[in-house]
Amino acid sequence: MEPNIHRGNSLLTTNLSNLDINDVVVFNYSDSLFGKQVYVFRIVGKPKDVIEIKSGILYRNGSKANKIGTSYDYKVTMNEYADLKPNLVSDYDLRKKREDTLIVSLSEKVAINNNLDDRRFILSNDHSDNYINEVYGKNWNKDFFGPLTIPSGKYFVLGDNRDNSNDSRFIGLIDKEQIIGEVITTW
């Protein structure tokens, strides 16, 4: 959830609120590889919403969704990386090295301030992600996903670090019963 919630932050939650778009929620999740876990993600789709991601841009019901301090992967040179190092989202931001180009995770604000917003690392439409295909039975990827209509009692959640998040694109929709509560503050 970086850049908005950092590794090691404490969270205060409530289960007394009505869940809405952009709420950050804590929920139980279990799989055969890691067992029971607690995840923290942002609700971007509620029941009856249609979610689609085109060229890395999230759409809800046909309109661009509001962004709340999201970060993405960007292509930068070695020299640019040295200049950006103090602005990286976390210690884990250096993703890949391709010849003289690095893939780093930056907040959108930092990318725009450094004139890098046109260098976002976006997968092509013909790239299929095996994990997404396993969950949804579709040849989608993190940057070209949907359209998907959210059924009753389900939620679609995304991490704020959009290119590095094991969220609903990969784990599927979240049942309302899995949600422990909404995050109301962090420290």
Rank of each mutant, 00 (worst) to 15 (best):
residue 176 K to Y: 07
residue 8 G to R: 06
residue 144 F to C: 15
residue 103 I to A: 09
residue 98 R to A: 13
residue 174 I to E: 03
residue 41 F to A: 02
residue 145 F to L: 08
residue 133 N to W: 14
residue 179 I to C: 14
residue 100 D to E: 13
residue 116 L to S: 04
residue 134 E to P: 03
residue 167 D to I: 05
residue 112 I to R: 15
residue 140 W to A: 06
residue 97 K to C: 10
residue 53 I to T: 00
residue 80 E to K: 09
residue 23 D to Y: 05
residue 145 F to M: 10
residue 107 S to T: 13
residue 67 K to G: 11
residue 105 S to G: 15
residue 6 H to F: 10
residue 69 G to M: 10
residue 47 P to K: 03
residue 83 D to Q: 05
residue 130 N to Y: 14
residue 124 S to N: 12
residue 120 R to P: 08
residue 70 T to P: 07
residue 145 F to Q: 01
residue 39 Y to P: 05
residue 93 D to M: 04
residue 57 I to L: 11
residue 100 D to F: 13
residue 49 D to C: 11
residue 165 S to V: 04
residue 138 K to C: 15
residue 147 P to C: 05
residue 80 E to V: 03
residue 166 N to H: 09
residue 167 D to Y: 07
residue 64 K to D: 06
residue 111 A to V: 05
residue 11 L to W: 01
residue 25 V to I: 09
residue 165 S to T: 06
residue 146 G to P: 01
residue 13 T to D: 09
residue 145 F to N: 02
residue 73 D to E: 12
residue 123 L to M: 13
residue 64 K to A: 09
residue 76 V to R: 02
residue 72 Y to G: 00
residue 154 K to A: 05
residue 142 K to N: 06
residue 106 L to S: 02
residue 183 V to Q: 02
residue 182 E to D: 04
residue 73 D to R: 00
residue 1 M to I: 13
residue 17 S to L: 15
residue 124 S to A: 04
residue 165 S to Y: 00
residue 165 S to L: 03
residue 62 G to M: 07
residue 184 I to R: 04
residue 125 N to G: 13
residue 129 D to G: 02
residue 129 D to K: 03
residue 30 S to H: 15
residue 105 S to V: 08
residue 122 I to V: 15
residue 99 E to V: 12
residue 110 V to H: 01
residue 25 V to S: 07
residue 54 K to H: 14
residue 98 R to I: 14
residue 147 P to H: 01
residue 154 K to R: 15
residue 112 I to S: 15
residue 58 L to S: 03
residue 184 I to P: 02
residue 47 P to N: 10
residue 154 K to L: 12
residue 101 T to I: 11
residue 61 N to K: 08
residue 139 N to L: 09
residue 173 L to N: 11
residue 115 N to D: 11
residue 126 D to Y: 04
residue 87 N to C: 10
residue 182 E to P: 11
residue 94 L to M: 04
residue 21 I to P: 01
residue 141 N to H: 06
residue 62 G to L: 04
residue 143 D to M: 05
residue 17 S to K: 14
residue 75 K to G: 01
residue 134 E to S: 13
residue 134 E to A: 12
residue 164 N to A: 03
residue 128 S to A: 06
residue 37 Q to R: 14
residue 18 N to K: 15
residue 57 I to T: 11
residue 34 F to L: 07
residue 140 W to E: 01
residue 11 L to Q: 01
residue 170 F to T: 01
residue 166 N to A: 10
